[in-house]
Write a protein that binds this DNA or RNA. Structure first.
Ligand SMILES: [Mn+2]
Ligand SMILES: [Mn+2]
Ligand SMILES: [Zn+2]
Ligand SMILES: [Zn+2]
Lengths: 133, 133
DNA sequence: ATGATACTGATAATGGCTATCATTCCCTTT
DNA sequence: AAAGGGAATGATAGCCATTATCAGTATCAT
């Protein structure tokens, strides 16, 4: 990334000011609603550039990529298949075992992504309530 | 899945006879090359039906889904970002810790996917060789 | 100022996958 | 055996996230 333009700065600011996992479309909508003016292609390119520079990070879901702040550091995700909510965690033991597995297989790991799917507590309680009817 | 048709049987047989991670396109091409005759939509539907029935399993990569035999049971994957090769492993400690993490967060996990990215041993050795030039 | 380079934005194109729908295949019931 | 109905097929249209294209614009170095 040669230039941190106002467009890219706007994307970066919005992500850094929030705690969400944004997709490109959401970011574009939110930015354009708040005075900024940038095309969807610029958002995609900006996100790519910012991620390459380590200023933001992303997770690859089945349908789309979602971007978030990089200052939280590495972590993994729990994804509610009912409401789409995304929770975060980082477990050192898991991270260590991954390193061990890679080493055992002479695999030079550069990154990983662990997604856990299921029902979040809120959704679980709600469905428990409706069952009682 | 109400009927295990010859088309679906052909898909299932091919997957069960091999040890690869197939995408829909590859399966269709291979089947049509070997006397079978089935449209791409049928392959997609068949794969979905077979997976729902637990007869095959899949991994969701960034761009596409890849299907493999179910009789190997659950495992996770190492993916070479250079040659696309996919290696497999299963680590009980990681699986246990995942359960623990979910429990700690009151998250009702129904499944997970762990992808590890990097350079496989073969690619690593090759690039080491070319550096010596 | 001039030119080189990077970035933008509108839009076309791509690629994996799902929806549609007419046709065909099976299975059950007469 | 014939008829009817649900399920599957296959050709193709549509969908959606993302990337490619390209002309125009902004920024930087000389
Ligand atoms: Mn996160
Ligand atoms: Mn596998
Ligand atoms: Zn939920
Ligand atoms: Zn490799």
């Amino acid at each position: 990334m040669k230039r941190l333009t106002i467009q890219r700065q706007a994307i970066l600011d919005l992500i850094n000011r929030s705690n969400q996992h944004w997709d490109a479309e959401e970011l574009a909508r939110c930015l354009n609603k708040n005075g900024h003016q940038l095309g969807i292609a610029t958002v995609y390119r900006g996100l790519g550039a910012l991620e390459n520079s380590g200023l933001i990070q992303s997770i690859q879901l089945a349908d789309k990529k979602r971007y978030e702040r990089a200052d939280k550091g590495h972590h993994d995700h729990l994804i509610c298949t009912n409401c789409g909510d995304i929770e975060e965690f980082c477990d050192d033991k898991i991270e260590q075992r991954q390193q061990q597995v890679a080493q055992d297989l002479s695999f030079h790991m550069t990154g990983h992504q662990l997604l856990m799917f299921g029902i979040c507590q809120r959704c679980f309680n709600q469905s428990a309530g409706s069952e009682a009817l």
